[in-house]
Nucleic acid binder design. Structure first.
Lengths: 239, 239
DNA sequence: AAGCGAGCTTGACACAGATCAAGGTCATGC
DNA sequence: GCATGACCTTGATCTGTGTCAAGCTCGCTT
């Protein structure tokens, strides 16, 4: 378990407009200007450096987070240290809702991360009489659930090669929503993170990348891969 | 793929009160009497026999369902027939919300099943200006998501024995919420269903049951198991 | 610019769980 | 009451992925 320091910067009082390139994608994306102003007053904008904890499993869940910039790793641990990454959060993603009053997983930054942080109480009071917000929360939760179910299928029933291919395809699609389509898929997370996301070991992930490169499906580049044959690749990921 | 017939019975016009032993647990559990009456008018009560399809993946999602009685199997298939069961639905569970306009998984009855079926349009119109209902939907979605994440940890990082033990413990807890605590855990689903839920083969599930029995942790009985040593058992499931 | 360490790759070998094959149990229908 | 078929168990063997152990690459520090 790496040491995780405290957030390096807090910058309250900023207008969200100046920060949020991803307003439209975020939980607050459909608020009218006046309401957004009120919502904004509930937010703390917090900046984290690389590998800092946003929150940890079993902690009292006093806040929720809207990720503004950067990438976070969401994971659960078994008592003996085995780790399962349950997702990578991108800008626009909403984190920290839990069924009880404690977080059900941990989140930490991969590179630098900026979030809008809301205390649970004020946040819940704001949304509780705003059906628009509640509907949006429902959409977010439903989408998350559907992704989780796709991941169950992957973890339970796919081979190592299918897992890696499906991961790359899915990741490329998520990045495309934010940055547009690119030939090179950037992979800010390390091999161990990918392994813990796919239910594999780091060695198997590494070997599978090499294998896909030998088969001329991808080229491995620093911090990413270039997809050579998208068609054949999508086929491998689907079946 | 088994043949799945159409629902055998439709019994509109019943008062929900006469059907729903699980009102309090269901999505409609917090509606005031007057509102509940209105809600009830949107519902069709439908009865399914064993092994009938409630809905299938990729179908246009025209309805949502509140399970009243019985057990349903929720699953996704790969093109070559590999199956992952993503959950077993019990009375009180709410099914059929999808991120797009198509179901993201299939559902079919195991034994007999009774549901409250709602057409999507009227249902959404009913909830859209009722924050109480929306909050309840959020709670349901958040709980489902958390269960899905637990299952990811299980599928990605646990051994066969841990999977089976965790499944039995989790299943026992869910049944306890409905029927109270019992020594004997009934298992209405078959071994193949358990295998497809845990990402194992039927043979491995069968062997693992036998192993747990040899180790005097459980006794296998018709359609279920008796848990002999709950403490040692919970420990195995947790770690 | 040499040394260091984190992250990644590669190879040899081991093993948990898959696959293949057979046989058992039990409810159902004729 | 016997044949049938669905479901489950058990055994033998195979294999995909894990484990263990080296060695490589590259950026950072001094």
């Amino acid at each position: 378990m790496p040491h995780l320091a405290y957030p390096t910067t807090t910058c309250e009082g900023f207008r969200c407009e100046t920060h949020c390139a991803v307003r439209g994608l975020a939980i607050c994306g459909e608020l009218a200007p006046a309401e957004h102003e009120e919502f904004e007053r509930l937010a703390q904008h917090v900046r984290y450096g690389p590998k800092e904890a946003l929150f940890s499993e079993d902690e009292v869940a006093d806040s929720v987070y809207s990720l503004v910039e950067g990438i976070a790793r969401l994971y659960k641990l078994l008592p003996d240290g085995r780790r399962q990454i349950i997702g990578f959060a991108l800008p626009g993603d909403f984190l920290g809702m839990a069924p009880g009053n404690r977080y059900s997983f941990s989140a930490d930054s991969i590179g630098g991360v900026t979030v809008c942080k809301f205390f649970r109480g004020p946040f819940l009071r704001f949304i509780e009489n705003r059906p628009q917000m509640l509907l949006r929360m429902n959409e977010f939760a439903t989408r998350e659930l559907s992704l989780a179910q796709d991941q169950m299928l992957l973890l339970g029933r796919r081979s190592a090669e299918e897992k890696v291919a499906a991961f790359l395809v899915g990741w490329r699609e998520r990045l495309a929503r934010l940055e547009g389509v690119t030939k090179t898929v950037s992979l800010p997370m390390g091999r161990q993170d990918i392994a813990d996301f796919l239910g594999l070991t780091i060695e198997t992930v590494s070997r599978t990348f090499t294998k896909l490169e030998r088969e001329k499906l991808i080229v491995i580049v620093p911090d990413g891969v270039r997809v050579l044959d998208p068609k054949r690749f999508d086929a491998l990921a689907a079946a």
